[in-house]
Amino acid sequence: MDMAKVIEDVAFNILKQAVIYLPEDVKQALKKAYAEETSETGRTQLKAILDNIELAEKYQAPVCQDTGTIIFYVKAGAEAKNLDKLEEPLIKAVRRATKEIPLRPNAVDPFTQKNSGDNTGRFIPYLNWEIASGESIELTVMTKGGGSENVCLTGMLVPGEGINGLKKFVIDAVIKAGAQPCPPTILGVAMGGGSDIAIKLAKKALLRPLNEPNPNPEIAKLEKEIFEAANMTGIGPMGLGGKTTVLGVHIDYAYRHPASFPAAVAFNCWAARRASAQIDADGNVEYLTHKMRW
């Protein structure tokens, strides 16, 4: 068995699954929003979104023309072999996916403004590493749209304001973002750690399915409170007004320095694209979020 080839194929497959088929929890949340939205204009937008999701599946085409920046999350078993050789097959998979699916080339050199044309470049695709026990590798891909990325926010709040400071920070961010991130959006929120840690945790929180609130009931309560508050803004689907502004809120945290209260909000557009698979030491693959359809 050629492990590098297995990894490349799995990475290609989860990329293809992610950009064409939205996760079931996101589809369900959009259907629920369509049923409950009272703004007529808002409903036209949700209907178009649902129709578009169906068409993307039917024609096996990317659900949005902005196929995003490609980010991998690798949960590697400490006993897994050849982890130092994992990056190459992932890059190969991205190049292949760009050509074959196809994906829009979205990797630009910030100095020369030149587009690499294949979605790869320095640090792109970006790899987030986590070491777990065992010998299998869990691979997750997120393709992150530019419109929702442009309104992500990190802030250093006043520790004395506590959680209230966080609530205000998030609501203000949602209001300022308005129509830009293609609402209804999903919010990843994090506090503590440091400025870098907060935004990293916030973005990773976007991987959690919408029907899974935080296991800590206190945090789950805060998630619900912010979710309801964000939907009171009236921004609505695509910013055209309505009660569906966010589909869900996921919160994570790290302990903070006594003098600092870092906070971060990561936005994901309704086209919240993610997919995962697990590869064991013998090269057996289990797709965790999507069924294999080809």
Binding site: Q45, A48, N52, L55, P62, C269, W270
Partner: peptide
């Protein structure tokens, strides 16, 4: 005329 953001296949068809 606001076209739904992200509804790229609906437009292409």
């Amino acid at each position: 005329g606001a076209f739904t953001g992200g509804a790229a296949i609906l437009a292409a068809k």
